[in-house]
C-alpha cells in the first residue's frame, strides 16, 4: 500500500462534509448524472482546491458570465488541454512555494474535470503528456458517453450500438459500430500511482476515490460513469437507477488500480442481464436481439478479463460502504 494511503480514513454517511465546492443554481439538465459526481468530488476535495474544466457541459452550465457555480478557484482554457493547464498550475504552486512567494502549509489540490470527448478523443495527447511527466494532480473524466453539450455526437467513449447524431440508428448501420475505447487501460499504461472507476450511484465510494486520488503524490485518474438523461433518452428520475444498473450488469465495473495493482471494489457475482440496462435507454431501442447478445457476450468477456487481473494480485474486493 502507498504510504500516503496508509492511514486513509474514508468518508461514511456519518461524516460527510457540509462543504459545497459547486453551488446550486447551475444550468444542468434535470436529472443530470454528470454534475452530481462533480459536486461530490468537490465535496471530497474541500476548499483548498484549484479546478480546471475542459470545454463541455460542465463548463457551459457553470460559468455564463457574470454567474459562476464555482466556490473554488476555477479556470477554463480550451477543450483539449486541461491536463496541461493543470500541469502549469501544479508547477507554479511548486515553484512559488519553494521560493516563498506562496504561503500555504496545506496541499493545494489541482483537479481537472473533463468530459469523455475532451479525454478519450481530442485531449488524449495532453492527458498522456501530463500523466507521463508525473504532475501531482487529479484528473476526473466525467464520461457521459458522447458529445452531449453540442447535441449528442458520438465519441470514442460511446458504447457499441448507441444511437447518436453522428452514429445514427440507420436502416443499414444501426448506431455506434465500435466498442468503447479502453481508456483505463491507456491511463494505467502510464504507470501512475492511482486510477479508479467511479459512479454517482455509489457516492461514498466515489468520494473516497477522489480523496485517495488527491492524497497520492503524482497523477491520479478517475473514470466516472456519468449518466445523461437528455442524450441517452432516459427518464430524468431514472438517472441513478441507470447508473446502478451499469454496475449490476457488469457494464461499468467499479475498481481501483493502485501502483498497478487491480482491486475490484464491487464484485458482481450474479449480474443482471445487460438487456435490463439497455431497454430503459432510448439510445439503444433499435438494437436487434443479435446485437444485444453480442453486447452481453463482450461485457462478460471484459469483466472476466478484469477479474483475472484482480485475482492475479490476490485481491478482488474491498469493503463497499455505500449501502
Amino acid at each position: 500500500m502507498r504510504p500516503e494511503l496508509k492511514n486513509f480514513k474514508g468518508f461514511t454517511l456519518k461524516n460527510l462534509p457540509e462543504y459545497e465546492g459547486f453551488a446550486q443554481g447551475h444550468r444542468a439538465c434535470q436529472g443530470c448524472g454528470t454534475v452530481l459526481p462533480l459536486r461530490l468530488a468537490l465535496k471530497a476535495l474541500g476548499p483548498n482546491t484549484i479546478a480546471v474544466t475542459s470545454t463541455g457541459c460542465m463548463e457551459i452550465v457553470s460559468s455564463p458570465f457574470p454567474y459562476t457555480s464555482w466556490n473554488v478557484p476555477w479556470i477554463h482554457v480550451a477543450f483539449e488541454n486541461s491536463a496541461t493547464v493543470a500541469s502549469g498550475i501544479e508547477a507554479a504552486i511548486k515553484a512559488l512555494k519553494r521560493k516563498g512567494k506562496l504561503k500555504s502549509k496545506e496541499k493545494i489540490n489541482v483537479v481537472v474535470f473533463a468530459g469523455d470527448g475532451a479525454t478519450f478523443d481530442i485531449g488524449l495527447q495532453w492527458l498522456s503528456g501530463a500523466l507521463e511527466r508525473g504532475h501531482d494532480f487529479v484528473y476526473i473524466c466525467l464520461d457521459n458517453e458522447a458529445y452531449m453539450n453540442t447535441g449528442v455526437q458520438r465519441s470514442g467513449a460511446t458504447p457499441f450500438g448507441a444511437h447518436t447524431t453522428t452514429s445514427p440508428a440507420g436502416k443499414i448501420i444501426k448506431g455506434q459500430t465500435t466498442w468503447k475505447k479502453n481508456l483505463m487501460g491507456i491511463v494505467i499504461a502510464h504507470n501512475i500511482p492511482y486510477a479508479a472507476t467511479a459512479n454517482p450511484a455509489f457516492p461514498i465510494d466515489l468520494m473516497n476515490k477522489v480523496k485517495k486520488a488527491a492524497l497520492v503524490n503524482g497523477p491520479a485518474f478517475i473514470h466516472v460513469y456519468a449518466t445523461c438523461p437528455t442524450g441517452w433518452g432516459t427518464k430524468s428520475e431514472d438517472s441513478l437507477l441507470t447508473a446502478k444498473l451499469a454496475v449490476e450488469t457488469r457494464v461499468f465495473p467499479l475498481y481501483e488500480v493502485i501502483d498497478g495493482k487491480y482491486i475490484i471494489n464491487r464484485k458482481v457475482d450474479k449480474p443482471k442481464p445487460v438487456e435490463e440496462y439497455l431497454k430503459i435507454q432510448r439510445r439503444f431501442r433499435h438494437l436487434t436481439p443479435e446485437q444485444i447478445a453480442y453486447i452481453q457476450e463482450r461485457v462478460n468477456q471484459e469483466y472476466e478479463k478484469l477479474l483475472k487481473l484482480a485475482e492475479s494480485f490476490g485481491e478482488t474486493q474491498t469493503e463497499q460502504k455505500d449501502e
Binding site: 484549484i50 480546471v52 479556470i75 482554457v77 480550451a78 483539449e80 488541454n81 496541461t84 493547464v85 493543470a86 500541469s87 502549469g88 498550475i89 508547477a91 507554479a92 504552486i93 511548486k94 515553484a95 512559488l96 519553494r98 521560493k99 512567494k101 506562496l102 495527447q125 495532453w126 498522456s128 503528456g129 507521463e132 511527466r133
Partner: peptide
C-alpha cells in the same frame, strides 16, 4: 535557475501550461 521546467509534449501544450502557470501567479 530556481524554476520549474515542464518538458511538454507539444507547443500547444507549451502555451497551455504557461497559461495555467501564469493564471496561478507565476512568471512564465
Amino acid at each position: 535557475l530556481d524554476a520549474e521546467y515542464i518538458p511538454v509534449e507539444s507547443e500547444h501544450a507549451a502555451m497551455s501550461a504557461c497559461i495555467g502557470a501564469a493564471a496561478t501567479g507565476a512568471r512564465t
